[in-house]
């Protein structure tokens, strides 16, 4: 095989050329040479083929190896005397948190779900004292005789109850936010038994109910 003198100067650049390690100026000049030189074009093809061959060949060789116990063996060689049980626990816990956050989160989520399921069951059997009932309920509302208000129980969007005093109509001003007309109007509406709103409105002695 003979090469032109030009090829001899370009040949050492072909290897870094396929590695993408030439500076732009060099690359352009190599490419210019390649466009004119069939031999060097083939050399580049050979280098590329060889590079790929080596890579795949070594991959194949490594595929035949078994790394199952590899890390284990290395760890056994570097692990000093085992620390006390408590220290090991502590370390294992903190490491688990650090590296298996996903697993831990999943585990915790699982545990949380279980708790969510289990807790109401447990609490149903033994709820805090006085809390056998599911929701807070208003059972009765009374007012002082001298008070000029009519108490109403308003139901909120969340199903909670608001016990609110609405001034008697003979009162000049409503109890709530006198400067806010919209509020007044709405309140008046609420106070009217014929309110089209499905808000349950009970006057005087509203009966309990899931409010």
């Amino acid at each position: 095989m003979t090469s032109s003198p030009a090829c001899n100067t370009y040949m050492p650049l072909l290897s870094p050329y396929i590695d993408g390690e030439l500076v732009p100026g060099e690359r352009i000049s190599v490419e210019r040479h390649l466009a004119a030189c069939k031999d060097c074009t083939m050399r580049v093809a050979d280098l590329r083929a060889e590079s790929g061959l080596l890579r795949v060949g070594m991959e194949l060789a490594a595929d035949q190896a078994d790394f199952k116990d590899f890390a284990q063996k290395v760890m056994a060689r570097i692990t000093p005397d085992r620390p006390p049980l408590f220290e090991r626990w502590k370390l294992a816990l903190s490491e688990t948190f650090l590296y298996q956050r996903g697993t831990v989160v999943t585990a915790f989520a699982g545990a949380a779900v279980m708790l969510l399921v289990a807790l109401p069951l447990i609490l149903r059997e033994r709820p805090p004292v006085g809390y056998a009932g599911e929701r807070m309920l208003v059972q009765s509302v009374t007012v002082d005789d001298e008070a000029h208000v009519a108490p109403v129980v308003l139901e909120t969007s969340a199903g909670n109850a608001i016990v609110w005093g609405v001034h008697h109509l003979d009162e000049a001003k409503p109890a709530v936010a006198p400067e806010d007309e919209a509020t007044d109007e709405e309140l008046e509406q609420e106070a009217a038994p014929a309110s089209p709103d499905d808000t349950k409105l009970k006057q005087d002695k509203p009966k309990g109910g899931e409010l």
Binding site: L123, P127, P128, G130, Y131, G133, E134, R135, M136, L137, V138, Q139, S140, V141, T142, V143, D144, E146, A147, V149, P151, A158, G159, N160, A161, V163, G165, G208, L211
Partner: peptide, 13 residues
């Protein structure tokens, strides 16, 4: 001026 009778429950306000 109001007296309210309540049943406590685990939810709501």
């Amino acid at each position: 001026n109001t007296e309210v009778g309540l049943k406590l429950g685990r939810e709501g306000q």
